[in-house]
Structure formats: structure tokens, C-alpha cells
Amino acid sequence: MAAKLNFFPLGNADTLRIDLADGQKVLVDYAAMRNGEIGDKRCDLPEELRRDLNRAGRDYYDVVCITHTDTDHCKGFGDFFWLRHAGKYQGEGRIKINELWVPAAAILEDGLTDDARIVRSEARHRLRDGKGIRVFSRPERLKKWMQDEGIDFESRKHLIVDAGRTVPGYDKTGPEQVEFFVHCPFGWRQNENTVIERNEDSIVLHATFVEGGQESRLFLASDVNYETVSEIVQVTRHHGNEDRLLWDIMKLPHHCSYLALAPDRGAEETKPEPDVKWLFEDQREAGAVIVSPSNPIPAKGSEADQGVQPPHRQAANYHRRITNADDGEFRVTMEHPSQTNPKPFAYNVTALGIALDVAAPMVSSSAAASTPKAG
């Protein structure tokens, strides 16, 4: 089977399910945002995920990655998953997690509440237990926390993955046919900062898929801002790993916020900082796809257009322009579902590149698109 990337319409919130070539299922973030009110076009995430798992004959995910603990990335975590740290999260019908991926910040941050606190409790429990966990980056304060908790760091360091490394257990030549490269968080920056910056200390991944001998690349940018994107570009280029910044499909950072491009919004279009511009314009493959996990882009002069929250029209104008110039696609998750059919959409990894799954329930045949490789 070929890998598939499944995006869910959840408002300004993130969930992506990656179905791998060997049948593994990787869930990146979980945000059950639908409230059931009339007119709510956000999908029923628990229902959609359970339907897929039932079809696959399983009650677990191989991996659940919580990129950071903002509500729009973990809402409903404690209601949906079977968790190891407390019996009240182990009822019938809950979905199990073989391996939980979290940034170091999710373990270290104090003052968390609700689902963020539940994520932290589960991650800490698994780290103490020494299994079923991957922690991304190892700042000195993580070592200090482990020491204070009586956890032997040396016996757990194989569970920690630093930026600039690949995630163990995934190989382009293996049956899974994918490799995950870690761009963020940076342990050194967490050592410099006295306060955890949740968005900037989140997990940023670059996935390389292989199908029919052809490589396709997915960039998952979490909620980082332009400064962190610039640091990712500079560090990666310094180490001669520019190929780790090539992309066929980009999950935009922070719901199409202008702050993921530059400090200034601009009147009609955000002008990206130089390193960000290089990533978006020079590293995109022909026909590349940008997915904005966000509310619809506001119309000029509308109330939403005047607000501070993303999505920002000026950022979207930039992304649309460079996408149109490259014969690509700019797709906003909440611009597609209807009130009666708020379903996810998917892209298939094919031997010709990334292609929109025309069998997805909310996509008509006239909307089909693909991004075949040049040459």
C-alpha cells in the first residue's frame, strides 16, 4: 500500500493522520474542536478517527505525536486515549498509543491545566517507565528534572531525539518507507531561555517518503514563528543538509499567521524574511502543495481581517501567489467542508509525487489535483 496524508477540518487547530506503506498509523496532534452547535463545520474528530481504526481492525496508533501542548493541538486528549498513568483513562473504547512523541517542553513546563496537563502526566509516566515514549531535544533542564525525579538519564537517553537527527525505527528502505528528520526543538535555545516558549519549543519534522523509487517530502511546521523558521534554515544549511528542507507538501505553521513569515503583516501581502523566503520559494518542488490548517481566509475589510488571530489575509496572499506561480495548490482545511459533510481530505504518496485523493468524500472529481515530479 502507498502512504496517505489525512488532513482534518478543525478550525484553527491541527490534526494530521499519516498512514504508512506498511500499515502503521501516525497521528500528529489531536484537537477535538467540534462543539455540535448548528452551523459548526468542524469535523467530529473522534468519530472520524474511530471509523478509520475500525476499518483497519485495530484500537491503537503506532505513534501519537503532540507537537506542543496548546489547546488547539491536544484538546480532548484525556477523553479519547487509553493512558497508562491513571486508571480513570483506561475505560472501554479508548484508543491506545504504542509510542507517544512529545517535546521536552511538554515534560518540563509547570502550570499546565486540562488536556495539556494530562499529556504531561502521561509523558512523565512513560519516561519514568522507560518505554512507549520519544522525547524531542535534551536541554540541560531535562537532565536536571530527571535527576530530581530519580530517573537515570543514561538508561533513558535512547528515548531522546535531538534536532538534526532522524527518529529511530523509520527508514526509507524499510517496509514503512519513510524517514522522519527532526528540525526542532533546539535544546541549546531552551537552555538559554528562562521561560519555556511553547510554540518555539515545539516539534518540527521533515518526512521523506519513498514510493516506486520516487521520494516525496512533507514539512510539518507546527506553530513556530519566522525567527525559529530562520534558525532551522540557517542551522540546516550550515550542516549541508539542504535536502532536509525540500518539500512537496507543507503544513503551514500557526494556521497561516503572518508571524510565521515576518514581523510585519504588510498591507496586502506579507514579505517574508530572507531565510523564510528561501524555504518557501527555493526549496519547494514543482507543483508543491501548501495546506493551511485554519479557518477560512478572511475577506479584505471584514471583521476577521482586522483581528490579531490567524489566518491572516496578507500571509495567505503570499502563499497563494507563490503557489500559483509554481502550478501548485494552496488548500485551507476549513474552506472545503460543508455543514452536512465536514469530512477530512487526503493526499496520496505516489510514484509520481503527491496527489489529492479523489476518493475522499468531500472532494469532487473536478477538484482532483496532483503534483507529479518534474523529469
Rank of each mutant, 00 (worst) to 15 (best):
H183S: 04
V204M: 01
D152N: 12
I160N: 00
N199H: 14
I196G: 04
P168G: 08
V167R: 02
N191F: 05
R189M: 12
G187F: 04
N191Q: 10
P175W: 14
I196A: 08
P168E: 12
E179R: 08
Q190D: 10
A163D: 01
E176F: 15
V204T: 03
D162Y: 06
G174D: 10
P175H: 15
G213P: 02
E200V: 01
E154Y: 10
A207H: 13
N199G: 12
V178K: 01
V204Y: 01
N191K: 05
L159K: 05
K172C: 15
H158C: 10
Q190M: 08
H206M: 05
G174C: 07
N193Q: 13
D162L: 01
I151V: 12
E215K: 10
V161L: 04
F180A: 01
Q177N: 14
T173E: 13
P168C: 09
L159C: 06
E215W: 09
S155F: 14
E154I: 09
W188V: 11
P175K: 11
I151F: 07
G164R: 00
K157D: 15
P185A: 03
F180P: 00
A163K: 05
A163N: 03
R217A: 06
D171Y: 14
E179P: 01
V210H: 08
N199W: 08
W188R: 12
W188M: 15
P185F: 03
E211W: 01
D171C: 13
G150A: 05
K172F: 15
R156H: 06
